[in-house]
């Protein structure tokens, strides 16, 4: 995967280095207040696509740590991203382009509506430990929640949808 990144990057770099110098420099000169009000997505669109397109980001599967390293490397290569933007961009990219597979869920200290619902209805029979140990996608959670309502869990159809959206966002 990293090999692909390098090849793609190097080949595009030679084609786009002129644009990189011009727009990258412009990005670096933008006022700080304006940068802070931008979303991570906007920053990525603005700074990263100076040299390459989003397709190069979309095929990556990196952890938060992996994305932090990549962003740091790109800054070293001239990406006009400042310290305050680095963490936001890395977190944004990690949330979208991360290793495959469902992410573990947190229930115990989750005070959202769905979190409270899980704690109220599901823990009548079993602990939150069993919920947090699962690594299911939306279809898997739907099967489980339907099974559990069959087994007596008090969940309305709307509540099931709320929980699926929360457990497998």
């Amino acid at each position: 995967m990293h090999g692909t990144w390098w090849i793609a990057y190097v080949s595009m770099f030679s084609l786009r280095n002129i644009a990189f110098v011009i727009f990258g420099a412009l990005g670096a000169l933008a006022p700080v207040s304006a940068q802070n009000s931008r979303t991570a997505e906007q920053i990525v669109q603005m700074r990263c696509t100076v040299c390459h397109r989003v397709d190069l980001l979309e095929q990556q599967r990196l952890t938060s740590q992996g994305w932090e390293r990549e962003v740091a490397k790109m800054r070293g290569w001239g990406a006009a991203v400042d310290d305050s933007e680095t963490a936001a961009i890395a977190a944004y990219l990690a949330s979208r382009y991360s290793p495959p597979g469902p992410k573990p869920v947190r229930v115990t200290d989750d005070s959202s509506a769905a979190g409270n619902l899980l704690k109220m209805r599901c823990t009548v029979c079993h602990g939150t430990d069993l919920i947090e140990a699962q690594r299911l996608d939306a279809a898997g959670w739907r099967r489980e929640l339907v099974k559990m309502t069959g087994w007596g869990a008090q969940l309305s159809p709307d509540e099931i949808e709320l929980l699926i959206g929360h457990l497998a966002p």
Partner: peptide, 9 residues
């Protein structure tokens, strides 16, 4: 198992 399966892990 990958993809993950519901149940005790």
């Amino acid at each position: 198992y990958d993809p993950p399966v519901a149940g005790v892990q």
